[in-house]
Design a protein around this nucleic acid. Sequence first.
DNA 1: TATTCGCATGTCTTTGAAAACATAAGTATA
DNA 2: TATACTTATGTTTTCAAAGACATGCGAATA
Lengths: 151, 151
Amino acid sequence: MFSKTCEYAIRAVIYIASTGTMDNKTGMTEISNNIEAPAHFTAKILQTLVHNDIVSSQKGVNGGFYMNKVQRQKHLIDIVRAVDGDTLFSGCGLGLSTCSEEEPCPFHEKYKVVRNNLKNMMESTSIDDMSKQLKKGRKFVRLEEMSKNEQ
Amino acid sequence: MFSKTCEYAIRAVIYIASTGTMDNKTGMTEISNNIEAPAHFTAKILQTLVHNDIVSSQKGVNGGFYMNKVQRQKHLIDIVRAVDGDTLFSGCGLGLSTCSEEEPCPFHEKYKVVRNNLKNMMESTSIDDMSKQLKKGRKFVRLEEMSKNEQ
DNA sequence: TATTCGCATGTCTTTGAAAACATAAGTATA
DNA sequence: TATACTTATGTTTTCAAAGACATGCGAATA
Ligand code: FES
Ligand code: FES
């Protein structure tokens, strides 16, 4: 469904939203360890997210990544758009160069319903929601170590 | 959403279902030209589909690809399963190794609804349906040349 | 202000899907 | 049965996503 890049991005954002605060920023190593993603690749993805104002970062001693209130209220679709663009939500299901009501492919009528379902879900699900799910006990990658790192 | 392989597969099947009959089989060249897919790659995909009894083929003079009644009544999900496997319909939206109700990730509750929508749509949409859509005027790749080839 | 920590940025390498190539094998027709 | 035709199969090449490496830059703190 999503690209590897996008999966890592969402996992990283959920992790940062659940641990990183202005006073206690989350470091690169801790993030990549806990979401089980390659460190350098994750770093590159996070830079894209910083540029798109989805997460914030601070260099230097005690630096790291964190999110402010406005950023936490953004939605999953913002992450996908920043990383993978809008193709998933507007492109043709059969991979044709264009998708429109004027020149629909045979799959169009059926596909657009599902595609809109996906889009609505991603638009209405905030990062805060995901963070709450995680704290409510929805398992995550290496959640055990997460609490260990928080000590 | 789907892999390139899968997109080509669906396009090829719709094309064959719309043109290939027992008496008038559709050739490899005609298929790849009309669905705008690389010939050799399409050939390989079609062999997978033949092995999975989604399309039939015949070698030699006047050979080509065609579909019988039973094959035309199969559904889009059969094509995806044959080519890409079942990951899209049962895997975790965040790319975690497992997805289950017992150990759900934070995305699980929201994602499974959309994933089931997609699955239901693919399960209930037959290849015949797609072929009818094409014949009803739903545009396809190079539909113009398709009728040319039919002459 | 020097040093150290940790993100930022650009380049390089790896990997696997996608695409191309070459050869085999089956079928119709003369 | 010889020949032309067309799919079947295995191998090789290409390319972009994924991942690794090296260096630069900003901030804290002693
Ligand atoms: S044109 Fe193919 S899904 Fe809209
Ligand atoms: S565990 Fe992630 S979607 Fe089910």
